[in-house]
Amino acid sequence: MAPKAILFDLDNTLTHRALSIDRYAERFLHEFKIEIAEADTRQISHLIGRIDNGGYLRPESEYSSIREAVGYTLAQELKWTGPVDPKRLITHWMDHFPSAAVEMPGASAMVQALHRKGIAMGVISNGAEHSRRQTLAALPFGETIETMICSEACGIAKPRSEIFHLGAQALGVRPEHCWFVGDHPQNDYLGATAAGMLAVWLSGFHPWPASITPAERSIKTLEGLLDMLAT
């Protein structure tokens, strides 16, 4: 049965986080180049990507957040011409990374096609309210997305069922009439399934755990979601 609404994860679903980091690295180097002795955008992107881990803080990290890890790593591992305050770099990341968002290939065409079909769309994302909304606003289709549910604002994070139910409620539909698309096996696919939604896994970003039964529905590109709707 065709869905009345489709909810999406944000990072590595509607946005391509690695490409967004590449774009941010260009801005970072442009603004700090006179303070850095040796660096290029590739090096900066590599450092951030290693720490960012697809938007998930590594369990062994000594830092409490990705923004903190990024700021301190850039301060410690780049060759600065003088002392640099990591807090300054953390603030720069918070202020400018969301607006560097690059859409996932095919996202605009998919959103437009779903809109023409009359399917309501929303986003459910773990993260800070301000950065999530900045990221969505930076995307060319951001205004077409009808609702944004952020874990910081509601005090509930994926994979808990309640946050998925909030998304369905915001779009005025029952969970069983919603599809959810995301890249993370546990937070997105299993979380949405447990909440009573039809879940679709976007593969290629997080490996599927061997201990979990393979996803019944998966796509490699967002175009695949439109193919799924057509069947």
Rank of each mutant, 00 (worst) to 15 (best):
A2P: 15
P3W: 07
P3R: 03
K4S: 07
K4Y: 07
I6V: 15
F8D: 04
D9F: 09
L10M: 12
D11A: 11
H16A: 13
H16K: 12
R17I: 04
R17A: 10
A18Y: 12
L19M: 12
Y24K: 05
A25L: 09
A25Q: 06
F28S: 02
L29E: 08
E31K: 01
E31G: 08
F32H: 07
I34E: 15
I34F: 12
I36L: 09
I36P: 11
A37D: 04
I44F: 08
S45I: 04
R50I: 00
I51W: 08
N53W: 02
G54L: 08
L57H: 02
S61F: 09
S65T: 13
A69R: 02
A69D: 06
V70H: 06
V70T: 01
T73G: 06
A75F: 08
Q76Y: 11
L78N: 05
K79M: 07
T81P: 07
G82Q: 14
P83N: 12
P86S: 02
K87H: 14
K87W: 11
L89M: 01
W93L: 04
M94P: 00
M94Q: 13
M94V: 06
P98V: 02
A100K: 07
A101Q: 04
V102K: 04
A107G: 05
A109P: 03
Q112M: 09
Q112H: 14
Q112P: 09
A113G: 06
A113W: 12
A113E: 14
L114I: 06
A120Q: 09
M121H: 02
M121T: 03
M121C: 07
M121S: 10
H130K: 14
Q134R: 13
Q134W: 04
A137F: 00
A137C: 00
A137I: 05
L139G: 08
E143C: 00
C150M: 02
A153T: 14
A157L: 06
K158S: 07
K158F: 00
S161L: 01
F164N: 00
H165Y: 10
L166S: 05
G167A: 08
V173E: 04
R174G: 11
H177K: 03
H177L: 10
H177D: 15
H177N: 10
V181K: 09
P185K: 07
P185H: 08
Q186S: 09
Q186F: 11
N187T: 01
Y189R: 01
L190Q: 15
G191V: 04
G191K: 04
T193I: 05
A195C: 03
M197L: 15
L198C: 13
A199V: 05
A199Y: 03
V200L: 13
V200R: 10
V200Y: 06
L202F: 11
G204T: 08
G204R: 06
H206K: 10
W208S: 09
P209E: 11
P209W: 01
I212K: 13
R217N: 13
S218K: 13
I219L: 12
T221K: 07
L222H: 08
M228K: 11
T231V: 15
T231G: 14
